[in-house]
Nucleic acid binder design. Structure first.
Lengths: 228, 228
DNA sequence: TTATAGTTTCACAGTTTAGTCATATTCATT
DNA sequence: AATGAATATGACTAAACTGTGAAACTATAA
């Protein structure tokens, strides 16, 4: 999947860096380490082929938020933040700063790797102008367009976001909460039934293909194409 | 089920280590031994492919709690604690430290193995795309789907949750209380007989495979596939 | 400002499901 | 085999959930 993607791991604790590095190396990633925020910035601006940054929040001199803010002025590179404990305020701050994922220590390295791969998959498809096809529904992420059997479909912003989320996660049962957190924002506190309304519209716009959006009673929705 | 999962067994008594090791090896696990807490930490941070740790509480130099605390700063790896006798205070402490299971000596090695397998199944299924097969019943946690010999089975939300819980804990006897706490919520105050009704429905939907859900008289239920 | 499209909330109706209860059955023990 | 206790079962009711249309609200552009 990845032709040696390069990940920059920033943490002041060498043991933690080593832990993360070893797991990523095992999964065929190139890993560069940085012991503090300043070094991280140096490396990032010097080497130009870094694909993702894993950033510890708690660091001396320059903390993770500052590093993130600095980088975000120049780059949209995916950033994963590591924080000591689940702290909702942190999480909100992170998403405002454009953090892509947020993992609280302690974490399972396997999960870390899974998140890294998921993010790179996501950004890869957005970059290369790749199109995703699911049962005749063609999604052009870069162009923000959807075609039904070649015919362009008019979708609103939210409708597109929702359909993208469904198609990217096809075959996976998605709870309303999960959908809200991903398609809306983590700080959205509205009614979960809003989803239903959007699903209704999507289904009607998708015509017969609307059936791919399945209802999972008591749980949420799932996008699935029959013949697979 | 497991492609040679590696278990780290930490106990100062070599006889106890050997006992646990022999049973795990018989079940196709790789086993690494450590005679004290410090060695355990060394091994854990050096070798990165350990899937589960079995940890004795009573050890010289560094006791099990300390080892657990140390590891939990870096990893969510499943930890099973062995203690000399059931002591509620210990159990609470362990729970706060993030211990996954708690087994009091003396224990039946069979139970130990069953718990190890249950925990690994649990963590494995958390990873996406993992399917669990138990005697022709295939559980796809991500898709929220169950197949019987390849044939998709229609289950309600609760039925699916209950069956998942049974299959993840296959081979483990489950009291009604435990089932209520895990499949329902901790604040559920309804009748425990509700479980019976759901078991009834599950059994009938599972057809001949319904027999895998065994009744343990005066206690609860156990999911077990004959030939195992 | 007004018009327009998009988003969200709400209430009602129609379904599905969960849980209860009474009765039948099974089990362990004597 | 008889007994008492626990479980299985089927029918029923209450509760929970979803689909839908319309109204309220928001943001945007003319």
């Amino acid at each position: 999947m990845n032709n040696k993607c390069t990940v920059l791991v920033v943490d002041d604790e060498s043991r933690m860096r080593k832990l993360v590095k070893d797991f990523l190396v095992k999964k065929e990633f190139d890993v560069i380490e940085a012991a503090d925020g300043e070094k991280a910035l140096d490396i990032f601006f010097e080497k130009k082929d870094i694909d993702l940054i894993i950033l510890d929040v708690m660091m001396p001199k320059m903390d993770g938020w500052q590093v993130c803010k600095e980088i975000r002025q120049y780059s949209k590179i995916p950033i994963i933040m590591l924080t000591a404990k689940t702290d909702e305020h942190d999480e909100l701050q992170g998403f405002n700063l454009g953090v892509d994922e947020y993992i609280s220590k302690p974490f399972s390295p396997k999960i870390l790797v899974a998140r890294v791969e998921a993010i790179l998959r996501r950004t890869a498809s957005a970059k290369t102008g790749e199109k995703i096809n699911a049962g005749g529904i063609e999604l052009d992420v870069a162009a923000h367009e959807v075609s039904l059997d070649g015919e362009l479909l008019e979708l609103s912003y939210k409708e597109f976001e929702l359909l993208s989320y469904f198609i990217i996660n096809q075959g996976v049962a998605l709870s309303r909460e999960k959908i809200l957190n991903n398609v809306w924002n983590y700080d959205y506190f509205g009614d979960a039934r809003t989803i239903d309304t959007h699903v209704k519209k999507l289904r009607s716009k998708l015509g017969s293909k609307g059936e791919y959006i399945k209802t999972i009673w008591g749980m949420g929705y799932k996008f699935e194409v029959e013949s697979e």
